[in-house]
Design a protein around this nucleic acid. Structure first.
Lengths: 152, 152
DNA sequence: TTGTAATTAATGTATAAACATTTAATTTTA
DNA sequence: TAAAATTAAATGTTTATACATTAATTACAA
C-alpha cells in the first residue's frame, strides 16, 4: 500500500514533504509491529532495545549514560527503563567502583534468554523484509543516512 | 552521521535489521525535529497533522473517524486532538445532520493562519532535504512503500 | 417493528514520554 | 585546598499514549 493510500492523501506538495511523511509513517508502522511482537513477552520495545544493548556488551558492564547514547530514542529515560528491567530480574546493577555516581549495568541470564526467544520472532520478520533484496536494502540504508545528513 | 555512529553500534546482524533500526531512528529524528518546530506555536505535531488534514478539506466538513483514517499515527485519539484544537479556537465542530453520531469538524481562519505560519518554516526544512535530489527522493519513497509491502 | 449488531465518538485509566529539577559525586580552577 | 562547575543518575510533574469501555445513534434482520 502506497503512502498515498495509507493516509488517503491523493497528492503531496512535493517529493520532500512526501518523504518526510512517508518516513514518519514507516517508523510508526515498525514501532507498532515491534511493540506487538514484544507484548506477549511482557516487555516494551524500548526495554528490549536496552536489553539488546546490554547483550552487545558481552558480559561487560555499561553505565546508564552509555545506554542512553546507544538508544534509538534518546529522550526516553534510560534510568527508568533499567528500573523496569531490574524489577523483572532481567538485569542487575551495582555502583561503579571507579565513579560512584555511575551504575554498572549487566544483563542477567534470564535477560539473555528472553532476547534469544524474541529474536526468533524477529528473524521471521527479517526474512519477510529480505524479499526486498540486499541491494535495495543497502540503498535504503544509504538514502536514510543521506537524508538525515541533509538536515542541519 | 551514519546510523552506526548515531547509536554507536559498529555492526548489524544483517542489512534487514539495520534497515529496521535506521527507519525507526530516522522516523524519531523527524518527529523530534517537527515537534521542535511546532512548540513555539503552542501546538503538537499530531495537532498540526489534524489541522493539515482539515485544511486539505478546503472548507468541507470531515468526521472524527475520517480524520483518524488520514492520520499518520492512527492509535492516537483524534477525538481528544480535536478537543485540544477546539480549546485553542482553531477548529469548530457541530453535530452532523445526516448522522447524529458523527461530528462535522471544520478548520477556522485562525487555524488556517497558524498552518500558513508554520509552513513557512517547514518549507525551509524541505529546501534542505531537496539537496538530496528529486530522483533520490522518489527512490526513497518507493523503497519505503516496498518496504512496508514486504511485511505481511 | 423490535431486538441485535454495528458504527461513531467520548471517556476512563494505567502507563509512558517529555522535560525540568534534584542529589550525589567528581573535576576543574582560582 | 576550597569553591564552582560539571557529570551521572534519580525523581517530580505535567501531558500524551495505548487500550478498553461506554453511550448514543444507526443499520439490519427476524
Amino acid at each position: 500500500m502506497s503512502i498515498s493510500d495509507e493516509i488517503k492523501q491523493s497528492s503531496f506538495k512535493n517529493e520532500e514533504t512526501k518523504a518526510v511523511i512517508n518516513l514518519i509513517f514507516t517508523g510508526n508502522f515498525l514501532v507498532q509491529r515491534q511493540q506487538a511482537f514484544m507484548k506477549p513477552f511482557g516487555i516494551t520495545m524500548q526495554q528490549f532495545n536496552v536489553l539488546r544493548i546490554l547483550q552487545g556488551q558481552k558480559g561487560q558492564a555499561i553505565s546508564v549514560l552509555s545506554i542512553t547514547e546507544r538508544m534509538l530514542d534518546k529522550m526516553s529515560n534510560a534510568s527508568r527503563l533499567v528500573d523496569k528491567l531490574f524489577a523483572k530480574k532481567l538485569v542487575s546493577r551495582v555502583q561503579c567502583k571507579k565513579d560512584r555516581r555511575a551504575l554498572d549495568v549487566y544483563i542477567l541470564p534470564a535477560g539473555s534468554a528472553l532476547i534469544a526467544q524474541i529474536e526468533v520472532h524477529l528473524d521471521e520478520f527479517g526474512k519477510q523484509i529480505s524479499q526486498l533484496g540486499e541491494e535495495n536494502l543497502k540503498q535504503l540504508n544509504e538514502l536514510l543516512d543521506q537524508f538525515r545528513a541533509s538536515i542541519s
